Simulated assay, not measured.
Amino acid sequence: MAQQVRGVVARGKGAAVGIETIVVPDPGPGEAVVAVQACGVCHTDLHYREGGIGEDFPYLLGHEAAGVVESVGEGVTEVGPGDFVVLNWRAVCGDCRACRRGRPWYCFATHNAAQKMTLLDGTELSPALGIGAFADKTLVAAGQCTKVDPAASPAAAGLLGCGVMAGLGAAINTGNVGRGDSVAVIGCGGVGNAAVVGARLAGAARIIAVDVDDRKLATARKLGATHTVNSRGSEPVEAIRELTGGFGADVVIEAVGRPETYQQAFYARDLAGTVVLVGVPTPEMKLELPLLDVFGRGGALKSSWYGDCLPSRDFPMLIDLYLQGRLDLDAFVTETIELADVEQAFARMRDGDVLRSVVVL
């Protein structure tokens, strides 16, 4: 029987979000209904509200979430009622050319729930990243549920669902940071600081955090950065080279998503070094680089989508590290809020006051 629950809905481009009653259908084949316990406020949700991702309003926002499976549909075997799960927005198909080649983190046919959640009048909602977790309950594809140890705090665990996994994965999976490497991270918001943590976990010897905000740089220091550069007062390429013996970093992670910071990343890496773009650019942005420099510097220019993660592999492992005290996910939770506070959380995020506001239900 369909259920009526509260959800945070964006009705139109740039309009303030509000709490509305949404209708969650019973799960169909391959689907699950999850009772949401916590959901982080991510920049992607703000992009949806601002029309930066699409115009399929109204949107049911929220996607960085953890909760408990309430019910499952026909054919679902990987999770069941009562399981504590982190939601992910890349349910792999298992059958596309990437999956068949043993690279499911590149899956080209990820999927969401087939049914739609709606408003009371029947208007279909577009769930953010196929999840829509600023709600008491949400309907997702069962493959979007990754079972993890229930001893983990929902507020911390849910952050693996997007931003923290994106940053950690950019360092560990995409950048292949190794022991003794030098790493620079440009942009130290939630994703960038997660990349700092990932570099530390991977054993990097030197981790250089770059930002224009001293508050974010102080947080980066706490999370494992060995050096910080405020690029308002220092030229970042020169500073990174100076801190790496004049050579540049082995891996540079660009967590801003702008042409000018990408160029900084390109020139701040060592010869044959790696650039990882994890910051999300907007559609109109263009990049110009001398092709001879691309050829002559060698190395690799990579993009990291969701940290090249495989949720079934990475989420349980990272939760285990968290429970062992080796991965401080709690450090990313700046504040816990209620559903009614999401609009104010967007403002705090824009002002750089938080790593993450987390809605706790």
Rank of each mutant, 00 (worst) to 15 (best):
E238P: 01
V256S: 00
R100H: 12
Y306G: 15
D211Y: 03
L119F: 11
V86T: 13
R356V: 10
R200H: 09
R215L: 12
K13H: 03
Q3T: 15
E74S: 15
D26P: 03
D250E: 14
R297K: 07
G169A: 15
D45S: 01
L323V: 12
D250I: 01
G325P: 07
V23M: 13
G245R: 01
L339E: 15
V191N: 04
F84L: 06
E31Q: 11
R241F: 02
R232V: 01
C42H: 01
Q37G: 13
C39F: 10
D353G: 00
G246R: 07
V85C: 13
D330G: 08
E64W: 06
C145A: 11
V360Y: 06
P81H: 06
R103Y: 05
A66P: 14
Q37R: 15
T123N: 12
I240W: 03
T228K: 04
V197E: 10
T261L: 06
T174C: 12
R200S: 11
V24H: 08
L321S: 13
G28T: 07
A194L: 09
M285H: 09
R6E: 14
L289W: 07
P290E: 10
T336A: 07
V256L: 02
H47Q: 02
D351H: 02
L301F: 15
L339F: 15
G12F: 00
R97Y: 06
S153L: 04
M1P: 11
A142R: 12
L323K: 08
